[in-house]
């Protein structure tokens, strides 16, 4: 699999590696997918990178590759910001080869990472017709998570047709941020767009939301999909290639 902009892959790894330290990458002719849960089974990440999004891609037979995201992250930190990236696995090999090429083709770096033997627990994620779908700038969402984490470790997300309200309370007191739905949309990327079938009010642990925001560099927008008593779906699209989707179980009344 070859990417002209290796930085995309680095952003994917940085978006995942706090939530899960290692994961099984499923490679097939259609591309690369990954599904993994955090250790407490409260959050899950689902990655899709379609083959047509790569500059070149070939997969002669399906492979499940156990990879340490922490190690992969360390190797990718050596990559130049404009480098292209090629990832290769030879048949019956126990390692993955990561090759980086500088833009002016004068520097070639090669790394080999040992593959891990991971037992992949797979969950069936039902297609959900969410009560509410919010689109907003990913930087805004990151900022809100950071601000709300000052006040408490849980965030209540309430949606109405006017907008969406994030609130948190704790020992210091309480705080809330309300975003009004954007009316005159000049730049889609900066708009707050809310499609609501019915109002929802759900509480989530802010530390997971903040971990999800590590994937914000992938996309200027984030999608939040909510339904009562249903895990939140938080989506960052990977341009012309796929997406990183996070799912987070809500906090419920004792």
């Amino acid at each position: 699999a070859r990417l002209l902009h290796g930085s995309i892959f680095a952003k994917v790894i940085e978006g995942l590696r706090e939530l899960v330290n290692e994961a099984t990458w499923e490679c097939s002719g259609n591309g690369i997918t990954l599904q993994a849960m955090d250790s407490s089974h409260v959050a899950l990440v689902s990655l899709v990178m379609r083959s047509e999004g790569f500059e070149s891609y070939r997969c002669d037979r399906n492979m499940s590759l156990g990879i340490s995201l922490v190690s992969m992250s360390k190797v990718l930190k050596t990559m130049g910001k404009d480098d292209s990236l090629t990832i290769r696995v030879n048949d019956d090999s126990d390692s993955i080869i990561i090759a980086m090429e500088s833009q002016n083709q004068d520097k070639f770096a090669d790394y080999e990472l040992r593959l891990m033997d991971l037992d992949s627990e797979h969950l069936g994620i039902p297609d959900t017709d969410y009560s509410c779908a919010i689109k907003m700038p990913s930087s805004e969402f990151s900022r809100i998570c950071r601000d709300m984490s000052i006040m408490g470790d849980s965030v209540l997300i309430c949606t109405t047709k006017e907008g969406v309200k994030f609130s948190a309370k704790g020992d210091l007191g309480q705080g809330s941020i309300r975003l009004v739905q954007t009316t005159n949309i000049e730049k889609e990327e900066e708009a707050v767009i809310i499609e609501m079938k019915e109002a929802v009010a759900l509480t989530f642990a802010v530390r997971y939301l903040s971990m999800f925001c590590k994937a914000a560099p992938l996309s200027p927008q984030v999608g939040l999909s909510l339904s009562e008593d249903t895990p939140l779906m938080c989506e960052f699209k990977i341009a012309e290639m796929g997406h990183v989707r996070f799912y987070l179980a809500p906090k419920i009344e004792d």
Partner: peptide
């Protein structure tokens, strides 16, 4: 409030 688990909502395959 208690933190729910994903396995309460998604079925292990």
């Amino acid at each position: 409030m208690a933190q729910a688990c994903l396995t309460q909502y998604f079925t292990p395959k």
